[in-house]
Design a protein around this nucleic acid. Structure first.
Lengths: 348, 348
DNA sequence: TTGAAAGCGATACCAC
DNA sequence: GTGGTATCGCTTTCAA
C-alpha cells in the first residue's frame, strides 16, 4: 500500500486534523514527473495524442496515490458546456407516480451519459428559481410548467441551456412541452360518475399546500364534465387525516351527494374508510372514484375505480432531451403525455 | 423596454435561431462602461468598497438588459468554496417517509443558505459514486451508508468535503453517522408478536431490488428476537403485486404460521388483503404487523399494528451539517435516529 | 471611486 | 511523445 493515512489524535477539536489541500492535476503532474498536459491526456484517454505506456502508468499511479478527483467546475468552465440535466427536487407532496417517473428518467438519461441533478429550490419562485438554476449552466432543464414562466425559459436559454422541457397543463413559450392535462383527469372521472347515473357529485380538494397545481384543474375539469347537464358538482375541502375525513363523512347525509371524485387514490382510501365507518354503502350510497391508479386501490374493498394516468416513459423523454440538446434550434415539441383512462372497478 | 427579442422564423430547423453567446460579467461591464471589478462589486453588494449610486444603477441595468446570470462554476472555482450539499437521489423504491425527510432537510438547509443537490447516480456503486460526487466539490455530503464505504468518505474529504454524514445501520469510519437501526425494527416487531403469544412467525422479504439494505437487517432482527426461544421465523419472499400475494396466501395454511411481520405497511396491506380474501381471520388466524406507520395502516380493517419510525428532524440534521462544516476537525458525531416504537392496533 | 491584473483547475493548441 | 501556455468566468488585492 503506497500511502497510509495516519489518524492524528486531535485534542484541540477546533483544529482540522489534516488540512492537506485538495490535490490538483498539477500535483499529479509533479508527482509523476510530467507536465499537466500529459496528465490531462492520460486521464481522459485522449486518443489524438499518443503517450508511452510507462508514462501512462506513472500518471495513473500518481493520481491514485494522491486520491486525485478532477474538478467538475474547472472542467466545464474550460469546456464551455456540461452534461448536467437539471430538474427541481419534487416538493414533499410528490406522489409515488412522479417519484417513479423521475427515477426512470434518471436512469434513461444516465444511459445517454447525462447527469441528472435535482435542485432543492425551496421557496424559490418563478424567475428567481430560473436564475438559480441558470447559475449551474445545465445543458437541459426539465421543470413543472408551474415553476417556470416564459421569462424563466428565456433566462435559462440565454445562459446556455440547450433544451428546456416543461411538464404541465399548458405549453410555455419557447420550451418543449409535455402536456399533462389534469383537467381531463377530473373530466373523465366525473363523466364516468355521470354515466353511471350519479347527479350530485362531490369533488375532494386537498387542503394540503402545494397540490393546487393539480387539484384546481382537476376540479375545473369536473365542473366542465357536468356543465349544461342536470348534475351538480360540490367542492369538498379535505385534509389528509382521519379526523377531517370522519367529519366529512358525518356531514355526508346532509350534503345530499351520491358520488365523489376524491382527487386521487390516497384521498379515496381515506374518505372511503370514513364513509364505511359511518355505515354508508359503497357504491350504493356513494360512488367513489380516485385517480393515479395506485396499487392500493386494487386492495380496497370494494375495489376502487380510478383514473389511470400514463406518464411519459423515461426513455422517450430522455430521447426528447437528447434530440433537443443536439438541435436547440428546432421548433418546440408538444407532447400529450397524460393518458387519462377510467378504470372501472367496484366502487362506482 | 430596452431590449426586445425578435423571434426569427427558422425554416432550416438544424440551425440555431439565435446563437447569441452567454453574457458574462465582461459584457455587463462593457455595456455599463465600467470594469469587471466594478460589476462584481455591485452585483455582490460588496460593502468593503463604495460604489456611487449612479454607477450601481448603470451596472444593474446592464445586467438586467443582457439577462446576465453569474456562472456558479467560475465563482466557486475562484472562491475555492461552495455551499452545495450533495445527496444521492433516492432510488425509486424510496417510500414516503424518506421523501418527506429529504424535503424537510432541504428546507432546513435552505434556511442556512445551503443548496441541496440530489445527484442522480444511476448504477454507480461505492467508490465510483463517491468519485462522481467528489467532482462537484460539495461542501457536505449526506448519503446512505450502503452507498459509501470508508474509502468513499476518504475520497470525499480529500476533495474538500468538510462534512460527510452517513445514514444507515452502522457508522462509517471518518464520517458523522445517523444510526438507523433497521435490525431493531424487525426485532421490535417480532418480539411484539412473540409477546402476543405467536410462535411460528413469517417475515416478508420484498422481492424488489434495492430494498435489501433495509429488508436484510429487518429479517436479521426478527431472527434475533426469537433466538433461543421456542419460536421460529420463516422467511417469506414476496413481490409487490396481487398475484404473488394471492399465491402466498393460498399456501398459508400449509406453512403453519400464526403471525407475520410484513417488512412495511404497504406490504402489510397487500398481504392482509390476500389473506382476508383467502378467508383467513386477522389477527385470529394470522397476526400481522407492518412498519413505517403510514397513514394507510390506520385505514385498514382491522387497523394495522406497526412499528413507528422516527427519522431525524430536518432542522436537527441541518444543524449537524452546519456544525460539521464550520468545524471539520471535530470528532465524528454518532446519533441514533430511528426510534422504533411498536404501535399496537388491531391486527396483532 | 474605479481599474488592471493575478489566479482558481482543467484542457487543447502549437512547438519542440 | 511531451511540455509550455492561453483560456474559460469570476473575485479580490493593490494601485491609481
Amino acid at each position: 500500500m503506497p500511502y497510509v493515512m495516519v489518524q492524528i489524535p486531535n485534542p484541540s477539536a477546533s483544529e482540522s486534523p489534516l488540512p492537506r489541500s485538495v490535490p490538483t492535476s498539477a500535483d499529479v503532474a509533479r508527482l509523476a514527473g510530467v507536465s499537466r498536459a500529459t496528465v490531462s491526456y492520460v486521464l481522459n484517454n485522449t486518443d489524438a495524442v499518443r503517450i508511452s505506456e510507462p508514462t501512462r502508468r506513472r500518471v495513473r499511479e500518481a493520481a491514485r496515490e494522491l486520491g486525485y478527483v478532477p474538478h467538475a467546475a474547472a472542467r466545464s468552465l474550460r469546456a464551455g458546456y456540461s452534461r448536467m440535466v437539471l430538474t427541481p427536487a419534487p416538493s414533499f407532496a410528490a406522489g409515488p407516480l412522479y417519484t417513479r417517473f423521475l427515477s426512470e428518467l434518471q436512469w434513461a438519461l444516465g444511459r445517454l451519459d447525462y447527469t441528472v441533478v435535482q435542485y432543492g429550490s425551496v421557496g424559490l419562485r418563478g424567475d428567481e428559481a430560473a436564475r438559480a438554476w441558470a447559475e449551474l449552466r445545465p445543458v437541459a432543464v426539465l421543470a413543472p410548467g408551474s415553476d417556470l414562466g416564459p421569462q424563466g425559459v428565456e433566462v435559462l436559454k440565454r445562459s446556455g441551456a440547450r433544451a428546456v422541457v416543461t411538464l404541465g397543463p399548458e405549453a410555455v413559450e419557447g420550451a418543449h412541452a409535455l402536456l399533462a392535462d389534469q383537467e381531463r383527469v377530473g373530466r373523465s372521472a366525473v363523466r364516468h360518475l355521470y354515466d353511471r347515473g350519479r347527479r350530485r357529485i362531490g369533488v375532494v380538494v386537498p387542503a394540503e399546500e402545494g397540490l393546487d397545481a393539480f387539484s384546481a384543474p382537476r376540479l375545473a375539469g369536473a365542473r366542465r364534465a357536468v356543465h349544461g347537464t342536470d348534475a351538480a358538482v360540490t367542492e369538498l375541502p379535505l385534509a389528509y387525516e382521519e379526523r377531517d375525513a370522519a367529519r366529512l363523512a358525518a356531514r355526508w347525509a346532509s350534503l345530499g351527494l351520491d358520488a365523489v371524485f376524491t382527487y386521487n387514490d390516497e384521498y379515496a382510501m381515506l374518505l372511503m374508510r370514513a364513509l364505511q365507518d359511518e355505515g354508508l354503502a359503497i357504491p350504493g350510497d356513494a360512488a367513489v372514484i380516485g385517480a393515479d391508479d395506485l396499487m392500493l386501490g386494487r386492495l380496497l374493498r370494494p375495489r376502487l375505480s380510478t383514473v389511470h394516468l400514463e406518464l411519459p416513459s423515461g426513455r422517450d423523454l430522455a430521447a426528447l432531451v437528447d434530440r433537443a440538446v443536439h438541435d436547440p434550434g428546432a421548433a418546440p415539441e408538444r407532447h400529450k403525455v397524460l393518458g387519462a383512462a377510467v378504470v372501472h372497478r367496484e366502487s362506482s
